[in-house]
Every structure is written in C-alpha cells, then in structure tokens.
Design a protein around this nucleic acid. Structure first.
Length: 211
DNA sequence: CACCAGGCAAGTA
DNA sequence: TACTTGCATGGT
C-alpha cells in the first residue's frame, strides 16, 4: 500500500499539477478559512473572507475587538454564521489569553497544537489538521469527505473507516513530509470537486480509474 | 424544485 | 455506544 499511496499522489499531480494550497495569504486567513469552510462551498467562504478583507478586519486584533454579532454579519455568506462567529471568537480568545499571539500558538509542537485545537468548540479533526498543516506548516495529514468518498469508492479503505483510521493509513504509508501532505490533500479535493461529487456515483473517466 | 458543499456538537434512546 | 438533528448560505 505504501508505494500505491505515493503512486496515487503522483498520478493526481500529473493530472492536475501543483495546487498551491492553502488558498489564503497569511496563517490567520488560513485558520479562519479552515473554520468557515466546514460543510460549506469554498466560493461562499471566499465571499465571507472578502467581506472582512475589504474592511481590513482580517486580523487577530480586529476579531478580538469585534462584537460576535458584527462578525456574524460579515461571514453570513459562509453559512452557519451565528455558530461560526461564536466559535471563531472562542478560538481567538483562547489564543490571546493562553499564548498572547497567533505565532506563538502555532509554533507549538505538532501534537500539542493539534490536541489544543481539538479541545475547542467548533474545531474537529479536519479543522484541527487543516490549521496544523496549512497555517502552522506542521506534518499532519488532513482527511475530509472527499478523501473518505474517493478512497472507499476505489476500495482502498472500508466505507466504515473513521477519520483516525484513514489518517493513520496515510501517515503510516507516506514519508512524513509537509509539502507532500499539503499537495496530496489539495489534489484529493481537486479530484473530488471535478470527478467524485456525492451525486455522481461513478468515476468512469477519473484519473484514478486504474487504482 | 431538491440536492449539495473542503464539519461539528448536542440530543436521544 | 450508535444514530439523528440543527446549523444556513449560495450554486446546480
């Protein structure tokens, strides 16, 4: 399996080219985007981020100063906006009160950062891993619905495998390499969006048809 | 119109 | 423990 997982990555990279993830300029923007994209199309997340950017509000200080209701209005296009606003405020409050600034928070070792993120309301395994990998640049593999759907449809994992099992399979069978983890997850999302939507059960002409 | 999108937590039995 | 439901906008 170890060679196969690397082969799949190479096939996807050959088909799609480098994805240049995460789509965001700063660790803060990446972290916010990771929460906003929960069960939400990225186009809607981009609208929310643009709303904040156009008012110069995409910063720790601005988020800390903003009323939760005000933040909710800015991020409205991303859906679940009341929940997400409250959870983002909680995240920012945690970082400031426990670490002072974002950089210090993100510089913790991988396991500590991931566990701390998981302890917060609104941060589950995928969001914690996305922030750990893409905002902090630390080696953890991100699993999402596309990963589960694509790899189970190709009988490379079992339908009932959970997040941790899938993540372990990738991390046990790939070199521990941040650029590799970064590219691999991005390529999986690219493949999912184009060839493996929920409503499109069969991958006839998908780049992974031989796997 | 129904279904879906780069989840997560809380409620129920 | 194992399901189910709420959260919500915008695109297809």
């Amino acid at each position: 399996m170890s060679a196969k997982l690397q082969d799949i990555h190479d096939t996807l990279l050959d088909a799609f080219g480098p994805q240049h993830w995460w789509p965001g300029d700063t660790p803060f923007e990446i972290m916010i985007g990771a929460v906003l994209t929960q069960n939400t199309a990225w186009t809607n997340v981009q609208r929310a981020i643009d709303n904040l950017k156009s008012e110069n509000l995409l910063s720790m200080d601005a988020f800390a100063a903003m009323e939760v209701g005000t933040l909710a209005e800015f991020i409205r296009p991303s859906g679940y906006y009341n929940q997400k606003a409250a959870r983002l405020k909680g995240l920012i409050h945690h970082i400031i009160s426990n670490h002072g600034d974002l950089q210090t928070f993100l510089e913790q070792d991988t396991a500590t950062l991931r566990e701390e993120l998981l302890s917060l309301k609104g941060i589950g395994p995928e969001t914690a891993d996305s922030i750990t990998l893409y905002a902090a640049g630390k080696p953890t593999f991100v699993v999402d619905t596309y990963t589960h759907r694509i790899f189970s449809r190709h009988n490379l994992i079992a339908e009932e495998d959970d997040y941790h099992e899938i993540q372990t399979m990738f991390m046990d069978n790939l070199a521990e390499d941040v650029p590799l983890y970064n590219q691999y997850h991005a390529l999986i999302v690219r493949l999912g969006k184009e060839y493996c939507k929920k409503s499109k059960p069969l991958c006839d002409d998908c780049p992974l048809k031989d796997f």
